[in-house]
């Protein structure tokens, strides 16, 4: 019997590793090895024809910390995250509350909210270009009806990042809405009935009952929005290319530019490591802190 069990265990081990191996190979080649290679190459200087690459330790990182553009980009990205995360969560919540209530044209409303989610960011940027273009754009046309002067939304440092932020919110709010919508549908009807019998106002009901019950969903969405604030940069390529004078440049775009426009892979690698470190902290916080707090649902 024990020999049989032993055989079965060996068989499972062999099968297990065999089934895992294709995925393991690809994950190694395109995730683990590149992560380590990035760390490695971030400690070497950029090779030129005269000077070959050499080990420089933390010099690339020091260069970044001394680079005013880097700090500008970090500041931009923090601002981008600081606005897009709360605003898209708030809009998503409003959308879900509306799309879940008994209003007329509910089907149309839901579709309209969700549609931007299925569009590529590049297409979204093209659509918004039509709004932002100075003189011809929809925003300027509306402004001129009220006698406002033409504004170059994408061309001036004060408004360029805002223009980018609005497109991001437009793109992700409808996506986050569906998670709220699903969560709202799990709230039992009798809570609402009990609140009605007690004569609770709708505002109190929402604030005291609905919002606390939606807390786990909010945390889930917040983590996703945080990841999006690193990832969603495609529209920069169409709308501003990070300009004017770096006012709307975000980190991932800067990494791309460093590596593929300035051909400076070592500094791009150093920046990548910093981004991975931040994402790792977000992951750890979610794993050790938030997951424990969301089990009361």
């Amino acid at each position: 019997m024990s020999a049989h069990a032993n055989l079965e265990r060996r068989r499972q081990a062999i099968y297990g590793w065999l089934l895992l191996s294709p995925a393991a190979v690809l994950l190694t080649v395109f995730a683990f090895y590149p992560s380590i290679a990035t760390l490695w190459s971030s400690t070497f200087s950029r090779g030129t024809r005269r000077k070959p690459t050499e080990f420089v330790g933390s010099e690339n990182y020091m260069d970044l910390f001394a680079d005013p553009i880097f700090w500008q980009v970090v500041k931009n990205n923090l601002f981008y995250a600081g606005i897009t995360i709360p605003v898209s969560i708030f809009i998503a919540l409003a959308m879900a509350l509306w799309a879940n209530s008994k209003i007329s044209a509910r089907g149309f409303v839901r579709t309209a909210y969700f549609t931007p989610t299925v569009l590529p960011m590049i297409a979204a940027a093209n659509l918004w270009l039509f709004f932002y273009t100075p003189g011809l754009g929809v925003l300027d046309q509306i402004g001129s009806m009220f006698g406002l002067p033409s504004v170059n939304w994408l061309g001036q440092p004060e408004t360029a990042l805002w223009a980018i932020i609005i497109v991001t919110i437009w793109k992700e709010a409808g996506f986050f809405m569906i998670f709220y919508l699903a969560a709202l549908q799990t709230i039992p009807e009798d809570l609402k009935e009990a609140a009605d019998i007690e004569g609770t106002s709708r505002w109190t009901y929402t604030r005291r009952i609905v919002l606390p019950l939606l807390m786990p969903t909010t945390l889930f969405i917040a983590v996703n929005a945080m990841i999006n604030s690193v990832k969603l940069i495609d529209h920069l390529f169409i709308l501003t290319k990070g300009g004017p004078s770096d006012a709307s440049k975000l980190i991932l775009y800067y990494i791309w530019e460093m590596a593929f426009a300035f051909f400076d892979a070592p500094h791009a690698a150093a920046m990548t490591i910093l981004v991975i470190a931040v994402l790792g902290i977000v992951a750890a916080v979610q794993f050790f802190y938030l997951d424990k707090r969301t089990h009361y649902q």
Partner: peptide, 19 residues
Amino acid sequence: VLMQLFILPEVLIVENYAM
């Protein structure tokens, strides 16, 4: 494998391009 969930393929563009 779970760790890879947080290392977005997007941020590894430089080394993945080399690979």
